[in-house]
Design a protein around this nucleic acid. Structure first.
Lengths: 145, 145
DNA sequence: TATTATATGCGACTTATTCGCATTTGTCAA
DNA sequence: TTGACAAATGCGAATAAGTCGCATATAATA
């Protein structure tokens, strides 16, 4: 009961998000957004595909890639790189960065990066117009030490 | 004259670097390191290969990849990602980050990132041991604006 | 419920990267 | 200088990530 109500709420949220973005509300998209919401760490294409299939959706890889393009386009998700030779994605939102454990792969968020001061300086000194930035720390997490 | 003397000096440097790293001094490696030195912006595998071929070396792609692995291993070069779906490399050294122009692709260095304070904070607050970090700014460079 | 733009499935393709194996080549000691 | 050996290379095939064209299916809405 509890669970299904929660899931329903999630699905509502996904649908809303899609409608706001003027996208058709399809099952694959709803389930994918739900997946982005529930995962604590950024996910890759393979993980999205696997999750969709768990939900009995026969979604194709190409569809996932196109979905991602669309979501990036509408600013629903953000693309990240952790030096794995592939991209990871997370719901767009708060300005935050990551602590990536090189041992277990766990990804922790850190926020409030205070890098806006930097961007200002860069604009003044280098006349470079900063659109966005990426900041990741790599190392060993607490429990792996 | 001038040019060939300079080039010779570079080659000496490359050879030294290789010997210090206990690597065999081969033509491909010397020319590659020279290339890393002379390029202002981080290079990708294709560019390395192209440069080697310009120097009449029939180097194979696989060799370049293995060379890169070796150089990374010895800390001669550093691997970078600029959201292109592939890696770029530069000589390791100064602690610096990049301004990546999303229009022309030019990459400018910025140094003295003062992020050590951050790392300290992260260690204290999150008990995360930072080994290295990446910081890139994406936007539009002066001449593209 | 019919229309239509959009999303999807499928299959082939490109690009980045890796691997095994046979051959070549620096290095170093004799 | 030369011979031995580990290390480096070339080649070809394989994998993994991501893209594309086209025919079909399906949400949105009138």
């Amino acid at each position: 009961m509890q669970v299904s109500r929660v899931r329903f709420a999630f699905m509502q949220l996904s649908a809303q998000l899609l409608q706001q973005s003027q996208l058709k509300v399809t099952n694959a998209r709803k389930v994918a957004i739900h997946f982005f919401e529930k995962e604590e760490r950024p996910v890759d294409v393979e993980e999205i595909l696997f999750h969709l299939r768990k939900h009995k959706l026969a979604t194709d890889r190409a569809t996932v890639y196109r979905m991602i393009d669309t979501f990036l386009d509408r600013g629903i998700i953000t693309r990240l790189e952790f030096g794995e030779g592939k991209y990871r994605y997370e719901l767009a939102g708060s300005d935050h960065h990551h602590l990536v454990c090189e041992n277990c792969g766990r990804v922790e968020d850190i926020s409030d990066c205070g890098i806006e001061a930097w961007e200002k300086k860069i604009k003044q000194k280098k006349h470079f117009l900063v659109k966005h930035h990426s900041l990741e720390f790599f190392g060993i997490c607490k429990s792996c030490q």
